[in-house]
Amino acid sequence: MPNKKQKIVIVGGPPAAGKTAVISQLIGLLKDGGVVAAVCKIDCLKTRDDEIYRALGVAAAAGLSKDICPDHFLAVNLEEIALWGERRNADILIIETAGLCHRCAPATKNTIAVCVLDCVQSIRVPDKVGPVLTNCDIAVITKGDMVSQAETEVFWQSVRLLNQNAEIVEVNGATGAGAQYLKIAIDARQSAAGVVGDELRHDMPSAICSYCVGERRIGNIFQQGVVTKMEFSE
């Protein structure tokens, strides 16, 4: 039987931003502090991240969304994931989402939302990611050691402009530098008990066109449901 309240942290962000590396560094610090962590990774087609987490000595689970949007899949499974964490007696349950379209924010209102962004891609990344950043509690910037300090500054500034309330921390996933600040930021926040009745921070993209249900042929005559067409200004 579940016997204590676990803190739930949902980590999102673009692919290859360093989510797994950042979480791994965080796990090291949590373990040092005697905190029991469990990690659930949501991915699309395949993942080996659960093995990485297990090798760090924490309980790990992986869910593959296959044909479904992984953030929808997470929302569908969040109650079960939370129960799994409780069964594993976790003090903290970390859910790593698949980095995809950035149209939605996978986090819910009562969980702690972390958005991981790497500043090597482009300093315009913050403008592109949308709700996963604008609705997060903690923004983590990675790979800052590879980019000029001037650009890192501009990057911070654009993150700050898009989300005035987030705490911003810089973490080096490779060396672990800065991971302690992420831990402090998480320690300072609470997530509410239980996920049933909790709400998504942002609506998910509607997925009800022909292609959502398996259509593969291109052309108007094959399209039904919600079909949004582009307008060209010429």
Binding site: V120, Q121, S122, D145, M146, V147, S148, Q149, E151, V154
Partner: peptide, 13 residues
């Protein structure tokens, strides 16, 4: 702190 290393690059377009 101002920090300059051999690994830092400019990446902005």
């Amino acid at each position: 702190v101002a920090h300059l290393t051999q690994n830092m690059n400019y990446i902005t377009d």
